[in-house]
Design a protein around this nucleic acid. Structure first.
Lengths: 205, 205
DNA sequence: TCGTTTTTTGAACAGTGTGTTGTATAATTC
DNA sequence: GAATTATACAACACACTGTTCAAAAAACGA
């Protein structure tokens, strides 16, 4: 698998990387919607025609970049959760998501704000919802009985909550620490999610 | 108050209303970002120059329109909550927000999706968070002691959850009913929010 | 290293939307 | 009905898009 992917032309790698970096830096400076393809190619020192040889439009560049980033994150998270599943709900909350937000704080501060992109916001939330459902909800689902709420709805509720928390945190210049934020949000979530996934009580006679 | 506002030229009212309606119908058809000012003025049968006499840009038109809508909603909600505060948390959840979403389902189905507007999403969430904090959280705050979580963070968490719920609901063509959705979300919320707002336990000796 | 393949460049193009300027026309108000 | 005010229409310079093409440059593989 890793051997087949060796055949990417250096120029292609270089061009795409330059465009990615240009996009990132411009997002921080001007906000996503305000950026033009001209801006990006100028900043990257690449002919505008070249852009269209690699990406369909601005969104395409953004989403291809994000896909790479999130594939790497997903791998890490998978591994992280692998040895957490045995102990049920850990007492120490997993702060790797808040840590990731902190690592790209300038980027997310824009992209999760009014100056970001609706498509980005909605996609990240859907992605998060799916991850949460697979890695958090599914493992703690009771083996039988109908839950009070549809599990995929719960995934969306938590994802919406998470993203709101990221926004709130970034607006306050990341106070308090990622660890505390993660603990706060998890504590709040768990007290809802356990009930939500518990089997329905039979109707009163 | 209501008498002073009587002096608005009919032509102005008519033009603005036409532009508002044009925007709304075009959002449903093409998504927000895809719309141009030309599109709007064409649909409204108004000269393009006239648009700039009333609004700065597309966002300005959207937000002025939304402001009017939400002012009306806020008035209704204020009144609704006025006679709910005595009984603490009602056993019947307030579904007026889901009902409002249903009334403008076509509009929100676009505007809360990838084809909507980031500024709209973030503003609506902030607006919701503020409303929730004032009308839901503040009344049930214990009179003394520090809560486990900052109340404004809790407002954002719930607002993010609400909007995620609207999105989930609209994607599923509003199944189940608004009443059930409201009950689900409230039940999920309350089991977190009560803990979040309870006074902190003193540290272990 | 050399010849081949592939990518990048730069110029040019038509097309579309923007935001602003005038002046003329139409509607509304008092 | 006269004065005021909003709208219409045409025109403008400007910016960005998405595409084509031939020439130049870079990377590849043997």
């Amino acid at each position: 698998m890793a051997e087949v992917a060796k055949k990417v032309d250096r120029r292609i790698q270089r061009t795409r990387e330059l465009l990615r970096q240009a996009l990132m830096s411009l997002i921080v400076e001007r906000g996503y919607e305000a950026i033009t393809i001209q801006d990006i190619t100028e900043r990257a020192n690449v002919a505008r025609t070249t852009f269209y040889l690699h990406f369909r439009d601005k969104d395409d560049l953004l989403f291809q970049t994000m896909r790479d980033v999130y594939e790497e994150i997903a791998a890490r998270v998978d591994e992280h959760y692998a040895h957490l599943l045995q102990q049920g709900i850990p007492d120490q909350a997993d702060a790797s998501d808040f840590q990731h937000i902190a690592d790209f704080a300038e980027f997310y501060k824009i992209m999760l704000s009014e100056r970001g992109s609706a498509a980005f916001l909605v996609r990240v939330r859907s992605y998060l919802a799916e991850m949460i459902q697979k890695q958090v909800i599914a493992p703690i689902m009771p083996p039988s009985g109908t839950p009070n709420l549809p599990p995929d709805l719960v995934g969306y509720l938590i994802a919406g909550m998470q993203i709101a928390a990221y926004y709130w945190w970034l607006q306050r210049d990341m106070q308090p620490s990622a660890q505390i934020m993660a603990q706060w949000v998890q504590d709040y979530c768990v007290r809802g999610v356990l009930w939500a996934l518990a089997p329905q009580e039979p109707p009163k006679p």
